[in-house]
Write a protein that binds this DNA or RNA. Structure first.
Lengths: 87, 87
DNA sequence: GCGATATTTAGACATTTGTCTAAATATACA
DNA sequence: TGTATATTTAGACAAATGTCTAAATATCGC
């Protein structure tokens, strides 16, 4: 859980997740949307992957990234506790 | 939104939020639950306050902290976009 | 196999973060 | 007014973070 909050605590990484909603993208396509170096984006993608928020699949020389929202459920559940049963 | 994710990205601060679910607490009561110095807890509380996740109210020499979950809705909404409409 | 393209790894560096101790501020109460 | 209690502020410091450039790795197409 720690690592998921950590992964979400960065505007670039959140923007990547939002982008991946519309379609799966290669690392390069993702990087093209930011004024940040490729290696930095690669590092962000690695963090998102560690948090299991994205899945990486190699296709030839490309690496396709896609959303994995199962871990989002955990965070949702944690947050919802604060919205339940109150006087 | 940035600051909310930042506030949530720490186990101590998340534990504080969980504690405040059962009852409002003073800064001292909160600090007693951790092996961390009072000033450090005070700093965490300040961050939570900046993120508007808690509300601080002074009563005499005590400062009572209570949950403010309105900002949680924002995060919930942001997260829910990932769980909606998918093939 | 070679050169071009795609991506990651390595290492460096400035900034941010979480923690501490010491000091400051605020309130209670006798 | 003076001392005790509650909390925050200030300043220091090590560790974590986000970024970069340079180099390494992997795959494609000729």
């Amino acid at each position: 859980m720690n690592i998921v909050f950590k992964a979400l605590n960065d505007p670039t990484r959140r923007a990547i997740l939002e982008m991946l909603q519309s379609k799966d993208m290669t690392a390069g396509e993702i990087a093209d949307n930011f004024d940040i170096s490729f290696p930095s984006i690669s590092h962000h993608l690695d963090l998102l992957k560690q948090a299991k928020l994205v899945i990486a699949e190699k296709e030839g020389q490309f690496v396709y990234y896609s959303l994995n929202t199962t871990v989002v459920d955990e965070i949702l559940k944690w947050l919802l506790q604060f919205k339940s049963k109150k006087k």
